[in-house]
Design a protein around this nucleic acid. Sequence first.
DNA 1: AAAAACCGGTTGTCCTATGCAAGCGGTTTT
DNA 2: AAAACCGCTTGCATAGGACAACCGGTTTTT
Lengths: 179, 179
Amino acid sequence: MRTNNDHRSGCPINLTLEVVGDRWSLLVIRDMMFGNRRHFRELLAKSEEGIASNILADRLKRLFEQGIVSRADDPSHKQKAIYSLTEKGIELLPVLAQMSNWGLKHLPVSEELAIRARLLREGGPKLWAEFMHELRATHLGVPLPPRRRPGQSVAERLEAAYAAIMTQQPSNRAGGEQA
Amino acid sequence: MRTNNDHRSGCPINLTLEVVGDRWSLLVIRDMMFGNRRHFRELLAKSEEGIASNILADRLKRLFEQGIVSRADDPSHKQKAIYSLTEKGIELLPVLAQMSNWGLKHLPVSEELAIRARLLREGGPKLWAEFMHELRATHLGVPLPPRRRPGQSVAERLEAAYAAIMTQQPSNRAGGEQA
DNA sequence: AAAAACCGGTTGTCCTATGCAAGCGGTTTT
DNA sequence: AAAACCGCTTGCATAGGACAACCGGTTTTT
């Protein structure tokens, strides 16, 4: 059933849209990537957009079937499942980064969330690659490469930037900015 | 109504998904970009995936309202409308390019469509920028920059690559390839 | 030991979005 | 004068998403 060739077309963009071209899949992946949400309830409750539990369950199942996330039992809790990104999932980062860039420039992004988008934009593909290495460490258990890193990890820098703005007044919205 | 702030969240990725996060919008944009489809019937009939006319009409309306495409009367035909990409629309190219990359690597892309994806991948952001300049010329009427170009335009190269493979046997499908 | 909270989901219901085929009034081509 | 073409619209059936309530089991708190 799943291995059927019932695709609308063999175009790479279309095939990608058939997998993640809906309103929720990429948000789940975003939360796993940038928010390090690894449990069902975490993804459910801390979702900025308020995903419904049946939708989340369905998306996790589909992403699992597509080999984009993996699922493992949490040894510390018999009922807990740990969701991880696979290499295939990690490699969606450039797609998310470009969407983030475009949204930052053209849509009314809230200030507290814009800061991370700017960091990602300024860092460019080099920063993305560094972050992907970190994701391979946290999600795949791959040891980090030698890394002659100047300071914190990318994850820490993103977190710090977000925390910094959140100490100030919340919900300061801005329109799309010009590069 | 349309200017309401009724967004699920101010996250740039979410906002982008609210605009183009469905199964058709980006395909319409893709066809306008890479296929130079500018008329309704063209987008309808030459759609690789077979979009329905009501969906196409709805998407064009929404993309117009979002400022991603513009609409003009065709002087040669009273009933014809010419759809063009705006700057905002043209700047979706990097998003499409990354999706193309990801699909090429991880999904069963058909060989005849893979060739263009590879060209886009090999060219990288530099080629994307060049193509975006061409799009500004054809869609916005902006004259092309000086351009010290080595050979054909990007559009011509993409077209030539596609034509080359289409002279051979059709529907030769391949699985995802490794970078 | 009992109660409460938490675990990953499932079920049912309602509503919207999508898919499909047919058709519309008008314009242009044959 | 007929046929083809123009950008859509309409009606209908199905698929997907939103919402709330709930499930059996596990762990933590009292």
